[in-house]
Amino acid sequence: MAEDTGDGSTAEMDDYETLMSTTDAELLKTAWRNEKAAPEILQFQAPLVKRAKEQIQLMEETVEEYEESGMDPLTVSLYQMDLDRAHFLLRSYLRVRLQKLEKYMFYIWKNESLWSRLSDPEKMFVQRCIDDMEKHLEETVLSKLPDNYQSVRRQSVISEEDDMVPEPQLDTFIACKARNRFVSLRLADSERPLEMERHDVSFVLYKVIEDKIGADIDLV
């Protein structure tokens, strides 16, 4: 929630805020931001998404009840706004993932560890995407090419690996902040660790913080 105001008394507030900022809406916002900023697909936040869906459904029913019971229209509209915001977050989160899946479907499909980060519906989606894409390319182009050039994934039969599969650029830099008060990062090419306070924004190589996203570090 509220960030440090720079008046010196923020350290205790930070801890308090960390404790308080654990509403699912806040967690979902963080998950959305992380997913949006990361170059590759991250672990699907299954329990969080499930809880968010339940809360949204519950709130939809509540709003409906309020409307029928003739509650003060102002209050109803405020609940509706809260609901809209939660809706937006959930949709954006799922949508960012779909965009990545569409873009890197072949790459994700053949990489076991990435594949395991997907939810079941997402796996189905990728599978169908691949089928459709292959069928489409087959019919429009590949079937008309010489035999050696008919693979969707390889340039020709002499290619030793899949060299036509779009891959995310992982040697990239992302902007991040420490979730709690202090994080120390080991950089591959430096003896001194990178020390981050809560008010620091760092641009760091993605691979360095990859396994800390959502735990010690959040992307911004």
Partner: peptide, 30 residues
């Protein structure tokens, strides 16, 4: 550098400088 730390950079500022900083760091990294 393999990392750049900027204290007290704000959200909107991160967003504005990100494309350039990331591209520059990537070029250096390469």
């Amino acid at each position: 550098t393999s990392a750049v730390k900027i204290a007290h950079l704000s959200a909107m500022e991160v967003n504005v400088v990100r494309p350039f900083v990331v591209r520059a760091l990537q070029a250096f990294y390469k």
